[in-house]
Design a protein around this nucleic acid. Sequence first.
DNA 1: CTGAAAAATTGATTTTTATCAACGCAACAG
DNA 2: CTGTTGCGTTGATAAAAATCAATTTTTCAG
Lengths: 236, 236
Amino acid sequence: MSLTGIFPIDKWNFRSQSIFLNLPDEEYELLCANQQEQVFEQGEIIFREGGIPSGIYFIKYGKIKKYKADKDGREQIIYVANTGEIIGYHAILGDDRYPDSAAALEDCLLKFVPKEDFLAALQQSPILTQRLLKALSHEFAVLSNTISVFAQRSVKERLAIALIVLREKYKDDGAPGEQVIINISRTDLANIVGTAKENVVRFLKEFKEQQLIHTNGRKIAILDIKKLIEISNYVS
Amino acid sequence: MSLTGIFPIDKWNFRSQSIFLNLPDEEYELLCANQQEQVFEQGEIIFREGGIPSGIYFIKYGKIKKYKADKDGREQIIYVANTGEIIGYHAILGDDRYPDSAAALEDCLLKFVPKEDFLAALQQSPILTQRLLKALSHEFAVLSNTISVFAQRSVKERLAIALIVLREKYKDDGAPGEQVIINISRTDLANIVGTAKENVVRFLKEFKEQQLIHTNGRKIAILDIKKLIEISNYVS
DNA sequence: CTGAAAAATTGATTTTTATCAACGCAACAG
DNA sequence: CTGTTGCGTTGATAAAAATCAATTTTTCAG
């Protein structure tokens, strides 16, 4: 089931995957010079909002939530980064503290590139710079889209959208051709949607009764994505 | 009344003002080669979401709302750009359609720079590129901040924040030393806060009763910004 | 396998927010 | 002036969402 033409999935995904692809050797080697592989287990925090950045992370595999926590500890997930994406570059490029926190949604393998190497490669590489500019500009579109959805859509609509978007992210995890299984806690899902987990449970139940999804514990399979898109009330 | 230390105003403002400042002559001339001054009256639309970008706009004076409209025409204002800021560059840098619409909140004078000139200057100028990268990275922080506020804060809190942020934007409009007057329609204010205008009116009334603000028609003056910051419940 | 802890689910209730309807006021064109 | 029109304001009500309290299910260490 492709979303082309029926759901604007590109408004929901960043484009940092392509940044390091096929770079000239020299620049690529700069980036790799002091890289380090790091394993993060599910739930582990990679960096915290307000912390001083020391480098960027390339996701070899796994999913990472980027979120902000309020003073009561409630998290709002801003974005879920997937295999192939990069995180942690905003703070370095903006010469600032981390604007958000990052934690592993599942066991992850990351490649850490120290700040100095990243900045050195940037100096050398117009291609890298240009790709970053493009990626960041697209992120603006994604985030402003998110803002309008939070401001204008109901919880049910937002949950429908979250399921559609998550399905894309979990697509490549299972065997090809198999049903996509979204494997995320109710709490994290609630923190993506921006509501209480009880509400998530209730609407999931409703979706289940309408045969739009199937659940098994924390696992969610989408049975009728077209109906979900209808519910999401999205007109691209 | 400075906000330093009591409210994180930098999390609410973009930093595109500095991009064109003190550029090397050659690059600056490229940008100016075919520039055109354009006047927009209050309410006039500068560009529309989904449109194909033809250039960028430098705000010589005036305020511009960047917003997204849903299918019922309800606007969500993503950002209010002020004198000195630039708009319209995301679409060009991202090689994409406009991700949002822009309209004049008041009479404006803009300087239009054609896409080709902007891109040519970009080719030539590492400084320009670097500044854009920095500005865009900071925008990420601003927008993710906005998202978390929409997801986690009440309408009253969001209105308090909006007033504090707008006060900064209207600061330079009056005579220096004079009381700052926020001059914006209830509808636009509601579309910043993300609620119905009736709610805005009601909470403004409450603020007025508590002597935090003073209103006269559409004009709002802030009398007690510290209390407003308390209400906004912001802890930086 | 088993008990404890964590997570998911359900129901009841309160709080918040949106919506609907009406009215007042001020700007403005004729 | 004066009627019209847009905007701001108010009150009443409906709808949506959050919160509270309990219970069931799942997970997982030992």
